[in-house]
Design a protein around this nucleic acid. Structure first.
Lengths: 148, 148
DNA sequence: TATTGTTATACTCTATAACTATA
DNA sequence: TATAGTTATAGAGTATAACAATA
């Protein structure tokens, strides 16, 4: 065990950015391995995870994933070919195609989350109160801060 | 402003995993845009960020990035061609090539961190104590939890 | 005219396998 | 033989540009 600081000593922004960088590295590695165990790439799994929150149009999905709209076509093509998602025409705007998870897609998405053992093990070391604190801090840092 | 919970109400693991997923999405999007502003891909920027902590052998870099060793060759090739990194023979083991950031590479890496405006803005909303708390919690969750 | 989604192109990333050089 | 790094190959991700259908 390292001597975990008790939230008293000052932490400058550079150190915290470095902490985020290392933490996301571990998280992404865990996510990538879990996705690979279901024979999915990280991008495919990322799309499934986004869709787990509800159906989305291709354009909205591209925005969520911070990539060009043209990329999404191929990713959804491959997921659809495997029966994990469905394209459905939007009744109110015939240009739009809404993408929805199939039941199998939901199963696979949940399985990936369950297989993120490193992250799950890390979280299990936190008390109930600490989990609530982490959730609240991440919400404040990463929710609704449009800069561009 | 949302009514930030004060670390009192219980947060189950699924909710926290969902929070990490969303937070990671925002962070990665911010990182990708910042890297693009320096004409780098996310993978190239990720390699530079890893090297900012110090020189590393190709194999160690592959492990850090959770990808196959063969991928690193191309990534380092492109970074070296642009003068951002250098390959140096290891004196103690002539099979090993240590990769080091050039001064220009250090400059670009720091510039990317600075250009992560969404993340920086989010962090700026935290108090000194809250930054220390977040740093400590992330350290506990994501440091040294080998499962495989 | 603007927007949604697709296609074409070119470059990059990724994993697998085979190879060279070194240990 | 085992390991570090490279190369070749094929499939997947990515951005740009051009396009058809719809608004």
């Amino acid at each position: 065990m390292t001597e975990a600081p008790r939230a008293q000593e000052p932490v400058d922004t550079d150190r915290l950015m470095e902490r985020l960088s290392m933490s996301w590295g571990v998280y992404l590695g865990d996510f990538t391995l879990a996705a690979a165990s279901e024979h999915l790439t990280a991008s495919q799994a990322k799309a499934l995870t986004a869709l787990r929150r509800g159906p989305a149009a291709m354009r909205a999905l591209a925005d969520t994933m911070t990539c060009d709209a043209s990329n999404i076509t191929g990713i959804i093509d491959r997921l659809e070919k495997r029966g994990l998602v469905r394209r459905e025409a939007d009744p109110s705007d015939r240009r739009v195609k809404n993408v929805t998870l199939t039941p199998e897609g939901e199963r696979v998405t949940d399985a990936i989350r369950t297989k993120m053992h490193t992250t799950q093990a890390g979280l299990s070391t936190l008390t109930t109160e600490e989990r609530a604190t982490l959730d609240a801090l991440l919400e404040r840092v990463f929710t609704c801060h449009p800069t561009t």
